[in-house]
Amino acid sequence: MHQSLIIHCERTSRKVYSPSDGGIGKGPGGEVLQFNRMAAIYSLFIINKSGGLIFYKDYGSAGRMDTNDSLRVASLWHSMHAISQQLSPMAGCTGIELLEADTFDLHCFQSLTGTKFFVVCEPGSLHMGALLKHIYELYTDFVLKNPFYEMEMPIRCELFDLNLAQAIQKDRVALMGR
């Protein structure tokens, strides 16, 4: 993906990890390693090309929001994404890919057909791009190929849920082992 904006929000107080966060150990050189906390995904959104939220799921208690809030976040993100393309000094900008904030990172992937996938996760989480790409594949396999799914409508497909849960789980495990 060519020229894209990365917005860095002011990051004044990065969260300090404490042992109660779990998964902190000492490396061979005594350096502090963070394990499973690295993989915390707070929530996942999918929005259709006109900005409607078609899928929302949250993971864990952090960042949980009610239906209205999730709809609001989705349409807000859709607009911000569009504005960012206009704001870019370079032509051919494809919109915000990563938004970094104090308490979360937001990774966004937009397919060429205009569907946006974004995850809200813990600051510094790695490999979210690959995860989003994988979720896009799951979407094409288990949502679009379902003959009873109507395009642009909210996703209610059990197979998608199931495979998505597996993908997220696998992602967690992979990161824990790192």
Binding site: M1, S111, L112, T113, T115, K133, Y136, E137, Y139, T140, D141, L144, K145, M151
Partner: peptide
């Protein structure tokens, strides 16, 4: 209209 997404997702065409 559905197939295109699978095509894009699996071929990584830009």
């Amino acid at each position: 209209i559905r197939l295109i997404d699978e095509f894009l997702a699996k071929s990584n065409v830009t």
